[in-house]
Amino acid sequence: MSTTVLYEAAGPKARLRQRIYTAVSVVALLAIVVWFFWRLNESNQLSYDKWEAFVTPDYLRVILVDGLLRTLQMAFFAIIFAVLFGVFFGIGKLSDHAWVRWPSWLVVELFRAIPVLLLMVFTWYTLGIKAENSAFWAVIIALTLYNGAVLAEVLRAGILAVPNGQREAGYAIGMRKTQVMSIVLLPQAVKIMIPAIISQCVVALKDTALGIYVVAPGLTYVVKQVYLEFHNRVPAILVVGALYVLVNLLLTALASWLQKRYVREKKPLDTPPLGDVQRR
């Protein structure tokens, strides 16, 4: 339903009222923005020495290369592994054999239900908190397990969304179960899944920021060093937030472009909610 059916084309009285609402909200919004910057300025957060680190090329290089690039690396590895994990357990959930189906269901349900941070702390201690790169891999493993479980659900929905005739045609020309899955169903399901995979990339990228709890490298870690040196915590928060938003918006734009270019499917995949026993 488009929103325009919710109200009539405005008459003279309503137009006046809407103009008043518009004026009031513009003033309120402007006041919030002005107040925000005024208070930042009052508390001395806009002075040059607070922002120096973010405009000096050397620091900028460290933030972007040791910070952002390392964060993107973690998200990238996590998504690649998560897709593999998702394919494995998503197909497992569709298996004809109960002894494959049930464990897959359990794994997917479990990792969807527990917080990434809990997983991250556990994998960090398992890899050894003093071991080299343990925090880096703890972030990747935790994100893989969580996003993989979500993608398993998406993949399952994607395979079920492929028209039934495709599967039947595969069996009719004498293909085996494995062949029908890998040659007929999976390629079509993956195509439908592309936008969901990319929106999961956004989730994974956002969750890399949790690495701060296990002292993982990446953007939050590097910027923490910066604000400990420059005592500019507030500008640091704003810069990190802006960088994350920027990268995520680029990913979202990519997703909608791919959707238009390759998928042309308007309907989002129908994944069952957690704990929905009827549809496992």
């Binding site: 107040w35 925000f36 208070r39 930042l40 508390s43 957060q45 956004v202 956002k206 969750d207 890399t208 920021a209 949790l210 701060i212 939050t220 915590r233 507030v234 928060i237 704003l238 990190v240 937030g241 994350y244 938003v245 995520n248 918006l249 979202t252």
Partner: peptide, 20 residues
Amino acid sequence: RNTPLVIVFAAFSFMAPMLW
């Protein structure tokens, strides 16, 4: 929606008290 929750938390733990 595009900001990590950690950053939102940081904003309300460290930035908001400075504003008001």
